[in-house]
């Protein structure tokens, strides 16, 4: 499997990642090399194998639905790039 420049641009858009136009060919090259390495996976038949998501096949632990954290909004927002009245600011989304 190899990727061309158009595919790299599409993936970069999906990842919301800006890639300089000039660097796209080099990304296409290295990503194709990685996918070539990854393609070795097809050598083994895995039809009857159960996918493994957790090394010990443990399930996600659940807890009672109760409040466990105090509100620390001011503290957490102190490191945010832009806030106002307890809200995170981003460029206008709706006209």
């Amino acid at each position: 499997m190899s990727l061309d420049a158009e595919q790299v641009k599409k993936i970069a858009h999906l990842a919301r990642l800006e890639i300089n136009e000039a660097d796209i060919p080099s990304y296409a090259g290295t990503l194709s090399n990685i996918l070539e390495l990854v393609d070795q996976m097809s050598a083994v038949n895995t039809d009857d194998v159960e996918p493994m998501a957790h090394p010990m096949d443990a399930n996600q632990r659940l807890r009672a639905d109760v409040v466990t954290e105090n509100n620390q909004r001011e503290k957490f927002q102190a490191i945010a790039p832009k806030t106002e009245d307890g809200l995170y600011l981003v460029p206008q989304v709706i006209e």
Binding site: V8, A12, A15, L17, I19, Y27
Partner: peptide, 9 residues
């Protein structure tokens, strides 16, 4: 960036 792209793909 490379790894984000591979993972996204």
């Amino acid at each position: 960036k490379r790894r984000i792209l591979i993972g996204t793909y």
